[in-house]
Amino acid sequence: MPLVDLAGAGGGTLSAEALTSAREAGLVGCTRCTRVWPRGTRVCGRCGGALHSRRPQSLQRVWGWWFAGLICYIPANLYPMLRTRTLLTVQEDTIVGGAIELATHGALAVALIVLIASVAIPVAKFMAIAYLALNLGHRARLTAHRRQQLYELVEFIGRWSMIDVFVVAILSSLVQLNAIATINPGPAAFTFALSVIFTMLSAQSFDSRMIWDRAA
């Protein structure tokens, strides 16, 4: 059984910042099942997942998906999300337009939810991922702990942006009253969904262990 010298790179102190990382101990940790293997092992013997000390090209992938998400987010705001056809009128609502419509009808709380879910959260997500990717190591103003929390927040909240796509799906399937009123999805629903999926992939590509690496 291989033995590991833990007193190596991390030093003798036990403060949280000085904990030895698997990488510093010449090991590689499995991000899936947390099992530890000698550096250079390719596949985890416990869960069968691929082992990487730090995910290769993590940042390239993060930026690739990030730009794809951003590009899709632009038409998502310019084109209509919903097409409402009534007897006399045809109305097309963009994300922001729909929220304003809701607010003028007095549903301020719902308008706020829509604005937060489809505008504030996606924009904040783009900014947060960019910040994390640009501020690795100890150059960052935020502590590693804060950046880790930011990353977890992005990962947790990213999926919730899909709510708008589901709302469009529910409204379009339900409001099909032939002549009186029909609601159909607009092209923005498609690009918005793509934008959410791409930013989720961008966040997943980020290897959060890089946040904690000491500056080389």
């Binding site: 033995l3 036990l14 990382s21 698997a22 099992r35 530890v36 000698p38």
Partner: peptide, 22 residues
Amino acid sequence: PDPATPRLAIDELIACPRCDAL
């Protein structure tokens, strides 16, 4: 890890999947 007995079997260890701490 206890600094007094720094040599541990590798399967007694666990690496944090988020920050890589052993």
